[in-house]
C-alpha cells in the first residue's frame, strides 16, 4: 500500500511539473504590451520589467521561477496588485473561496444523497419522476443562471438576503457572512445536488435489485436496515469519489459565482491574471499550481479512498 501511495505521489509530482512547465511557456507567450499613454515615460515600465527579470532569456526565467517557488517565494504581482506579494494576496482571499465551497458541500451532499436515496426507494413512482425531472433541469442549466434568478427573486424582490456580503469586517466564517453568502452557496449547490441525486439514485437502484438485498430481507432485516447497512455501503463505493470530484468542480465553478455575488475569493484572480495587460505571470503560476495540486491530490485521495470504503479493494496489489 505504502509503495502504491509513493508511486502515485511521484506520478502526481511528475504531472505537476509538466503542467506547470506548459503553463509557464504559454503565459510567457502572451503579448505583454502595456497600454499606450500620452506623456508616459515607457522607459520606467521597462526598468521595472528589467528588475522583475522579465527581459532575461525564458529558460533562465524558468529556472529562477522554480528556484524561488521551491522556497515558497511566488514573486511580486506586476499587473493585478502591483508590488504586492502574490502569495500574501492569495492567502488573504482564499478563506472566502474555501468558505463558499465548504458551505456548498455541507448543503449539497446531505440533500443530494437524501433525494437520491428517496428517489431510488420510490423508483418509477411520482416522487421519483418529480425528482428526476428536477434533476434534469438543474443539471442542464448553468449555475450563473440560477445565480441571477436567485439574486433577483431572493435578494431584490423578496429581500430575504443581501446582494453581496455587507460586512467584510466580520471575516469569512462569521455567521453574518454565512447568511450573506447563502444566495451564492445556493447557486453553487443546485448543480451539485442534482448531480449527486442522479448518481445516488442510479447506483442505489442497481444495488437494491441485487440478490444479496433479497437475502438480507429474508434474514429478517427491515427495508431501512437493509438499505442503510448493505445497499448504501455498496452504493457509496462510486459515490464517495464523486463527492470529492464535485468539490473540485465547485472550486472552479465558484469562479463565476464569486464574481456575480461580489465575493472576494480567489476565483477572479485566475481570469484576471491572464486578462491583465501585461499578464500577471506570478499570479497565474501560483493559481495554476493551486488548482493543479487540488486536482492531483484529489485524484490520489479518490484512488486511496476506495480501499477505505470497501476493504475488499486492494490498491497496488499484484494479486
Amino acid at each position: 500500500m505504502l509503495k502504491y501511495i509513493l508511486k502515485r505521489l511521484a506520478l502526481a509530482l511528475f504531472v505537476f511539473v509538466v503542467i506547470m512547465t506548459i503553463c509557464f511557456v504559454l503565459i510567457k507567450m502572451l503579448p505583454s504590451l502595456p497600454p499606450e499613454q500620452f506623456g508616459k515615460d515607457a522607459q520606467v515600465i521597462q526598468l521595472r520589467r528589467e528588475q522583475l527579470g522579465y527581459n532575461k532569456p525564458i529558460m533562465e526565467q524558468y529556472f529562477i521561477f522554480w528556484g524561488q517557488a521551491l522556497k515558497g517565494n511566488w514573486g511580486i504581482s506586476e499587473s493585478l496588485y502591483p508590488m504586492s506579494d502574490v502569495w500574501d494576496t492569495f492567502v488573504e482571499k482564499l478563506p472566502y473561496t474555501v468558505a463558499i465551497n465548504i458551505y456548498s458541500m455541507l448543503i449539497s451532499v446531505p440533500i443530494g444523497l437524501a433525494l437520491g436515496i428517496f428517489a431510488a426507494l420510490k423508483k418509477n413512482k411520482w416522487q421519483d419522476q418529480l425528482i428526476s425531472t428536477g434533476v434534469m433541469v438543474f443539471v442542464s442549466v448553468p449555475s450563473f443562471v440560477y445565480a441571477l434568478l436567485i439574486q433577483y427573486v431572493l435578494c431584490f424582490k423578496l429581500q430575504w438576503f443581501n446582494h453581496t456580503i455587507m460586512d467584510y469586517t466580520q471575516g469569512a466564517f462569521a455567521p453574518s457572512t454565512f447568511v450573506d453568502m447563502l444566495p451564492a452557496v445556493l447557486s453553487l449547490s443546485f448543480g451539485t445536488i442534482a448531480g449527486l441525486t442522479r448518481y445516488t439514485r442510479a447506483e442505489l437502484t442497481e444495488v437494491l435489485t441485487n440478490d444479496f438485498m433479497l437475502l438480507a430481507r429474508t434474514k429478517g432485516l427491515t427495508k431501512a436496515q437493509a438499505t442503510v447497512r448493505h445497499a448504501m455501503r455498496n452504493a457509496m463505493v462510486p459515490i464517495f469519489p464523486m463527492i470529492l470530484g464535485e468539490f473540485i468542480s465547485i472550486m472552479s465553478g465558484s469562479l463565476i459565482i464569486e464574481g456575480i455575488f461580489g465575493i472576494a475569493g480567489v476565483g477572479k484572480l485566475y481570469i484576471g491574471a491572464v486578462n491583465a495587460i501585461p499578464p500577471d505571470y506570478n499570479f497565474f503560476m501560483l493559481l495554476s499550481a493551486f488548482y493543479t495540486l487540488i486536482g492531483l491530490v484529489a485524484g490520489v485521495v479518490i484512488d486511496l479512498s476506495y480501499g477505505f470504503i470497501d476493504p475488499r479493494i486492494r490498491m497496488g496489489s499484484r494479486k
Partner: peptide
Amino acid sequence: IKFVEQASTRLEMFLKGQ
C-alpha cells in the same frame, strides 16, 4: 464602497436604498 461587478446588481442595490 463595495465591489459589485454586475450593473444589474448595482441597480437593484440602489433601488433598495443601499
